[in-house]
Simulated scan of single mutants.
Amino acid sequence: MKAARIHRHGPPESLVFEEVPSQVPGKGEVLVSVHASAVNFPDTLIIENKYQFKPELPFSPGGEVAGTIKAVGEGVTGFAAGDRVIAVCGWGGYAEEVLTTVDKLVRLPEGIDMEAAAALVITYGTSHYALKDRAAIQPGETLLVLGAAGGTGISAIELGKLMGARVIAAASTDEKLALCRASGADETINYATEDLRERVKALTGGRGVDVVYDPVGGHYAEPALRSMAWRGRYLVIGFTAGEIPKLPLNLVLLKGCSIVGVFYGGFSKAEPARYDAFMQELVGWLADGSLRPTITARYPLERAAEALRVVADRRATGKIMLTTSLGRGD
C-alpha cells in the first residue's frame, strides 16, 4: 500500500510518498482501508516534532480518516471486515491503510459520505465539546469565533447556530468572512481592517459576548477577553498564530468571567463514556443533515505535502481532504 510518510522531522515538503508493506492487525487491532483523510493543524506540528504526541520515525501524519474495515485482529468484537467506520487514529492516516485499535473507531451508518465523515471528529468534535460541555452555551447567547474561516472556526459557527447561539465570526479577509456567512454566521468582523473590540461593542450594544471561541491565540486574545460579558466563558482551543498570549487576570476578576481550557484528546481518555455519547450525537446530526462539513479543497493522497503546506501557511478555509484511489473510485 502507499503512504505519505515523514522519515526526518521537518516541514510539509519533508513528506515522502512511497510504497510500504501492508500491516496485519494484532490482538485488539483493526486494519482500515482509507477512503478519505482530513488535513488538520496538528498534522503540521506532529511532523516537526512540536506536538504532545511523538510517534517513532518513520510515520504518516493524519489523525482522522473514514473508510472500511479490511481485517480485524484476535479478540476484536463488535466490528468486522466491511464495516464503515471513522478512525480517530492520532497519526497514520495519510495512507491507503491505517492500523488502529477498536477504541479509536466510530461506527458510520450507511448513507453518510466518507469525506464528510472524515471531517467530523477533530474539528467538529472539539467544537462540540467546547461549546456544549466547557461553555455550556445556551440558546440566545452570543458567541464570538476567532479564526472563524478555518476548519475549527467553521465548525464552531455551525454548531453554535445549531445550539441556538447568535454567532459573530472574526477573520482576516472579506473572502473568508463570506464563507463564514455562508456557514451561518449572523455578523462578521474583519480584524485586519476593523477594531475587534469596538466592533464587538457595536454589535452587542456594549454588553459584550457570552462565549469566545479562540483557536488562534496571539494578539487578538486580549481584545477578545476585554469584549466579554459578565459571566462570560473564554474557550482556549489552540494557538495557530504561534504565540501563547499572556492575559491580564484582573480582567477575569472584573468581568466575573472564566478562562476555560479545551483539550478534546484529554476528554476522550478521561471520560470515555461521555466522549462516546457526544460522538454519537455528532454522527446523528451528520446523518440527519443538521451538520454539513464545509470541504473546500480535495487533494489526492500523493499530493499530501501540498495540502499540508496550505494548512501550515494558514491559508486554509473550511476543511481540506486527502482522498485515496479507493475513495475516488479509481
Rank of each mutant, 00 (worst) to 15 (best):
R166N: 13
I69Y: 06
N250K: 12
G238R: 07
E271K: 14
A80Q: 15
A148K: 06
Y275K: 14
I46T: 12
I244S: 00
Y264I: 12
A273M: 13
L146S: 09
E222V: 13
L308N: 07
V121Y: 00
N40R: 01
R303L: 12
I168D: 03
L99H: 03
V76M: 08
R166G: 05
A116V: 02
P272T: 10
L57D: 08
A117S: 01
A170Y: 05
K161G: 02
L308V: 08
G73T: 05
L326M: 11
F59S: 05
V211M: 03
E115W: 00
Y213H: 09
V72H: 06
A38F: 02
G75W: 07
L144W: 01
G289W: 02
L282K: 07
A149P: 04
Y234T: 05
R107C: 04
L253D: 10
L159Q: 07
L251V: 13
G205C: 02
I46H: 11
G73S: 04
A95I: 10
A71N: 12
G265M: 08
E13H: 13
G10S: 05
L326Q: 11
G92V: 09
L251T: 13
P55W: 09
G151V: 01
K269A: 13
G111D: 03
K246A: 13
D103M: 04
V311D: 08
R292P: 01
A304S: 13
S127V: 12
N250D: 12
R328D: 11
H128K: 08
A241E: 14
V216G: 05
L282T: 08
P55M: 08
D195M: 07
A149S: 15
E74R: 14
G256I: 05
A80T: 15
V76R: 11
A38T: 14
G10D: 06
A149I: 10
A156V: 07
E281T: 15
R199W: 06
A81C: 06
L146G: 05
G327R: 00
S290Q: 15
R298T: 13
A305G: 08
Y129F: 15
L253K: 14
V76P: 09
S268A: 14
G28L: 03
S60T: 08
R314I: 09
L291N: 01
T123G: 01
L254H: 14
G140H: 09
V212L: 07
D133R: 15
V121M: 06
L159H: 06
V252I: 15
L235F: 03
P245C: 07
S37L: 00
H35T: 03
A135S: 10
H219C: 10
V106R: 09
A185E: 08
